[in-house]
Design a protein around this nucleic acid. Structure first.
Length: 592
RNA sequence: GCGAGCGUAGCUCAGCCUGGUAGAGCGUCACCUUGCCAAGGUGAAUGUCGAGGGUUCGAAUCCCUUCGCUCGCUCCA
């Protein structure tokens, strides 16, 4: 058994996916469409299984999570509140000379003399009338501007350019030129990563809506409804799976970065640490590994965060991805988005590099607070016990909590660039509002967000399952075949069913009876085509973990083996003799 | 969006330079044969050579455009 490396491996996986019907390019007969992929018969089963495992693990097998299935198009104000309208729009421009791309808002301001040209000519070739200009910092000779301009016109086909219409202009603080070479940049082009559409027949600016770039915001928007109808109390979570859309600049690496993709997201709402402290007396420390057990009343956000990281990794282990497939990346404080307190990326070691499979962020109360602000509807919850507990708290403890809150908020304000005095005044005002509400038992829940990409996970599972088996026959001819070692829980087909020979009606009839016995409980594939070894090999390539072969002993050639079959294990190729009546009881626990 | 490379049967690829009307291996399907790991035999299907246009008597081959893929730049809340 060997593991092929790098792009070769990726190419093999892509090829297998097409050949066996895991993944096809979308719209292939029309030449394909960049960043969109379809799942074929085996891929569709695989994906269903993965999603079902997630839903079972996150929603069904827990008391404290409820499900949601929201629309893809939502009120556009949701994306203003979430920040996506602002942050997903990056103005870009390119250097006219080197074509290098810049974020227009990140080009440093420069001053100097701009040399403008109307074009260039060369009597022997052509004349170019495209205007161009070059910015020179103070003190540089005009000749260097002309050199850059000539290069520009040479690129445009004027092989020996004479510049036309040079004029100069003093500029202060301009961002229209490439700081590296002084060449003019193109006009700014806005680049919005959200897919835009129109709701209703008129298609005016007033009708603009977006396809959701993440499923999470629907959960925040429906938080109040779910909280009231699901009879859940904080801490509790809302899980959702569904399609999301991002107009990625560069879809890459097969299905890894697609423009239409599916997410599995949980928003787990928790009490703010101050409420936990008031209720439980203290907030548990994350360092003591308490987070590996059952949730406790004294868990603050740090412990909950670690708890979910561990839960998620256990989920991956449950579908065949061992811990050594992953790297955990704890984002450094300076890398965190402004609303996040901590974020862990679970990275999978893909053949093309180690890349993010899931992000688990501790987001504070940012999202719900934003929606409260933008919608005008309260997102807070009321907790009777908290009100009572707060009333019994001694004043020293309250004062200590407030002091810490103010110190943290002040530090955050300073980081955003406020003066120390302003930050302090602001923090004190926030503290007053916050603690007044807390005393009444009111708060906006904080949230831990484990957010996973389904399609990325599918790709990880494909890469993880891929293995090659080289066999050499007695003639010395060696052959390499592919075995997809999916965990039985996610394997598209659970069991292949084969009559040893197809020209013996008794074998065929018995095999079909076994198929009908198992089919109500798991995916089966009946195959009577070709030699038995070939059928095993075909199922190995599809990742089918078990094979059942009906032979003459099944029919009672050896009376003691009547109604037994051989059960073949995909990974070991071992065969065991099993009574037909025991098959279901043996297989079912392994595939569920 | 820019640059480079690539696109021929379901898959992997040859043919392209030097135009003459498309091939191999594997797979698929049918039949025969089958006695547990891609066995053998016989037969068959499958390509508007990524698409469009141009040059030419004639284009998979030369030229232009376009779409897709890969890599790099850029982007990735």
């Amino acid at each position: 058994m060997s593991e092929p490396k790098e792009n070769v491996l990726m190419e093999k996986i892509v090829s297998l996916c097409k050949r066996r019907g895991f993944v096809y390019q979308s719209s292939e007969i029309y030449g394909g469409i960049n960043g969109f992929w379809d799942y074929g018969p085996l891929g569709a089963e695989l994906k269903r299984n993965v999603k079902e495992q997630w839903w079972k693990t996150i929603v069904h097998h827990r008391d404290d999570v409820a499900g949601l299935e929201a629309t893809i198009i939502m009120h556009p104000k949701i994306w203003e509140a979430s920040g996506h309208v602002a942050t997903f729009t990056d103005p870009m421009c390119d250097c006219l000379l080197t074509k290098k791309r810049f974020r227009a808002d990140q080009v440093e301001a420069q001053s100097g003399t701009a040399y403008h040209y109307e074009g260039a000519e060369d009597p022997e070739t052509v004349t170019c009338r495209d205007p161009f200009s070059v910015l020179l910092p103070p003190g540089k000779p005009p000749e260097s501007a002309r050199k850059v301009a000539k290069e520009f016109y040479q690129q445009r086909g004027v092989s020996n350019p004479t510049l036309i219409g040079e004029r100069t202009e003093k500029l202060e603080g301009t961002t229209r030129y490439n700081p590296e070479n002084g060449a003019q940049l193109t006009e700014r082009k806005p680049f919005n990563l959200m897919f835009k559409t129109y709701v209703g027949p008129t298609a005016t600016e007033a009708d603009v809506a977006y396809l959701r770039p993440e499923t999470a915001q629907a959960i925040f928007a429906q938080f109040k409804n779910v909280h009231e109808t699901a009879r859940q109390k904080v801490p509790f979570g809302i899980g959702q799976m569904g399609k999301a859309f991002r107009n990625e600049v560069t879809p890459r690496n097969f299905t890894f970065r697609s423009r239409e993709f599916e997410q599995m997201e949980l928003e787990f709402f928790i009490k703010p640490d101050e409420a936990v402290e008031a209720l439980a007396g203290s907030v548990a420390k994350a360092a003591d590994n308490a987070w590996q057990g059952e949730p406790q009343a004294d868990w603050g956000w740090e412990v909950w965060h670690k708890y979910w990281v561990e839960q998620r990794i256990r989920f991956y282990e449950g579908i065949g991805l061992t811990r050594d497939c992953f790297e955990e990346y704890w984002q450094k404080p300076e890398e965190l988005a402004h609303y996040a307190r901590a974020c862990v990326d679970i990275l999978y070691k893909f053949p093309f590099g180690t890349q993010e499979l899931e992000g688990i962020a501790a987001r504070g109360d940012f999202d719900l607070a934003q929606h409260e602000k933008h919608s005008g509807k309260t997102m807070g919850v009321f907790d009777e016990e908290l009100r009572a507990a707060w009333g019994k708290l001694d004043e020293a403890k309250k004062a200590a909590m407030q002091a810490k809150f103010i110190a943290d908020k002040t530090a955050a304000g300073l980081k955003k660039g406020a003066t120390e005095a302003d930050a302090k005044v602001q923090a004190e005002a926030e503290a007053k509002v916050y603690f007044d509400k807390l005393a009444k038992g009111q708060y906006i829940p904080h949230v831990i967000e484990p957010s996973a990409g389904v399609d990325r996970l599918i790709l990880a599972l494909l890469a993880n399952a891929y293995s090659e088996l080289t066999t050499t026959d007695e003639k010395g001819k060696s052959e390499t075949r592919v075995v997809m070692k999916f965990h039985p829980r996610i394997a598209p087909v659970k069991v292949g069913i084969f009559p040893l020979l197809k020209n013996k009606p008794e074998l065929v009839a018995k095999a079909k009876a076994v198929r009908d016995l198992l089919r109500p409980h798991m995916t089966v594939f009946y195959d009577d085509g070709g030699a038995i070894g070939r059928r095993y090999a075909r199922q190995d390539e599809a990742g089918t973990p078990f094979g059942v072969t009906i032979d003459f002993d099944t029919l009672g050639e050896k009376p003691e083996l009547l109604d037994t079959v051989t059960l073949r294990d995909r990974d070991t190729q071992q065969q065991t003799r099993v009574a037909i009546q025991d098959l279901l009881g043996l297989l079912l626990p392994k595939v569920r």
